[in-house]
Nucleic acid binder design. Sequence first.
DNA 1: CATGGGATTGACT
DNA 2: GTCAATCCCATGC
Length: 206
Amino acid sequence: MPLTAGFYARGVLEVAQALIGCVVSRGEASGIIVETEAYHDSEPACHAHVGLTKRTSTLFGPPGRAYVYLCYGVHTMLNAVCEREGVGAAVLIRALEPLEGIELMAARRGVEPERRRALCSGPGRLAQALGVGLADNGCDLGLGPVTICGRPRRLGDPAVQRDRRIGIRRATELPWRFCLAGSPYLSVPVARLETGAAVGRGPAGG
DNA sequence: CATGGGATTGACT
DNA sequence: GTCAATCCCATGC
């Protein structure tokens, strides 16, 4: 059973951590989420920081929808919209451990199925592997085409590591990246923990 | 209407 | 390590 809106309605940091170990599916292809990042309209790295526009309307909409956009004119990014309607917040899905539809994902990526790490280790890569396109923007993650289900019981409670977000120009100091500890499917390894690093307290008013 | 930036990737030196 | 691809959309005139 897919996760419902209540799961996403919580604070975006809480959701970003809770999504580790959950399963993203689209059609025959699926994978276990091993890396996420949180974005919130209170900080400048978030698209919603500019306010409500045509582009950001999905972000400010109800929780539990997909926010899909094109990055660098080349790659599609898949996010899960969080927090209550009127708050611009989302979790970027950055890496998956491939689960089902390996052959299909490999064909879409143009790599050999044996190269598991090349399939979904990166936000652009996983979107390509799943066949996510701009037409999926705004879709209900409980209904599809893109769906997210809870953690498989057999996996237990995952150990989650926190890190700084990757590839952004602004608000780089926030430790809003969440990774499955020890996973070989991360887009980038977790940085060494810095002693005394500032710990984010979460978005104001979130 | 013109311009410029961007939450990336893959190819190449 | 460097760098180009490529396009949507926010902004400004």
